[in-house]
Simulated assay, not measured.
Amino acid sequence: MSLTENAPFIAVVGVTGAVGQEFLSVLSDRDFPYRSIKMLASKRSTGRRITFEDKDYVVEELTPDSFAGVDIEFFSAGGSIGMEFGSLAVDRGTVVVDNSSAFRMEEKVPLVIPEANPEAMQHIKLGTGKGTLIANRNWCCVWLLVAASGAGAPAMEDLELQTREVLEGKTPTCKIFKLQYAFNLFSHNASVLSNGYNEEEMKMVKEIMKIWNDKDMKVTATCI
């Protein structure tokens, strides 16, 4: 149990999604200390109940007033939501860990892989009343060969469904990518840029250079 009186007040945005649920798992597995936790998501998920560490929580709608008193906010709600509400949270004095691409390439926002560049967060302190942002790297910069997609729970459900269908000799149901996902490879669905790379590939190139603080590093990537 991680409930601790003098620990930070934390919140998880996008808590009903795949990454939001993973945030909760990591917090529990690492016995992360907190005095209170708030579960936040979009309006359509408001009112859902989540059990976390043997306690029931009601999911609240994410609004500009959601950050009052919150010390640490874990965001996993997409780039546009992160850009809008992450900035509001910082203005309220919250330390925001954003999982989207919204802030990754902003010069003053640390882009962090804890095992690679933990020193990027040395200046961040809780209890100062000063909000700040920490950006999480693009999924494929680390999980090159162990993740099926960064598209979240719907894509994972597609992969599971298609796997069953293909093994049963059925035509696979294609929802998210409009192509057969199970037992198949195809080019990433991001736009192809003028240099011939798609947007996902260039995310890897730029983010790896930033993480290692080396603009001269030669990086190439193929995302399929």
Rank of each mutant, 00 (worst) to 15 (best):
G86C: 07
G86K: 05
S87P: 06
S87G: 06
S87N: 10
S87R: 15
S87E: 12
L88Q: 12
A89M: 02
A89K: 02
A89C: 05
V90T: 12
V90F: 10
V90I: 11
V90R: 14
D91G: 11
D91C: 06
R92C: 05
R92I: 00
R92Y: 02
G93F: 09
G93W: 10
G93H: 10
G93T: 10
T94R: 07
V95K: 10
V95R: 08
V95D: 09
V95Y: 06
V95L: 14
V96T: 11
V96S: 09
V96G: 09
V96F: 06
V96K: 07
V97D: 02
V97R: 04
V97Y: 10
N99D: 12
N99Y: 13
N99G: 15
S100P: 06
S100Q: 02
S100L: 00
S101H: 08
S101T: 14
A102I: 02
A102W: 02
F103Q: 01
F103I: 01
F103K: 01
F103D: 01
R104F: 00
R104Q: 03
R104L: 00
M105C: 03
M105Q: 11
M105D: 14
E106T: 07
E107A: 15
E107W: 00
E107G: 00
E107F: 00
K108F: 08
K108M: 07
K108S: 15
K108Q: 14
V109W: 01
P110Y: 04
P110K: 03
P110I: 01
L111G: 05
V112L: 05
I113F: 09
I113Q: 12
I113G: 02
I113E: 13
I113N: 12
P114F: 05
P114D: 06
P114C: 04
P114R: 04
E115C: 08
E115K: 14
A116M: 07
N117G: 13
N117T: 10
N117Y: 10
E119W: 02
E119D: 13
E119G: 12
A120F: 13
A120L: 07
A120D: 11
A120N: 08
A120G: 09
M121S: 03
M121N: 03
M121T: 15
M121W: 00
M121G: 01
M121Q: 06
Q122L: 01
Q122C: 00
Q122R: 05
Q122M: 00
H123Q: 11
I124K: 08
K125V: 10
L126E: 12
L126A: 12
L126W: 11
L126G: 13
L126R: 14
G127Y: 10
G127A: 09
T128W: 15
G129C: 14
G129N: 14
K130A: 14
K130P: 05
G131I: 03
G131Q: 06
T132F: 03
T132C: 13
T132I: 00
T132V: 03
T132N: 12
L133C: 09
L133T: 04
L133S: 08
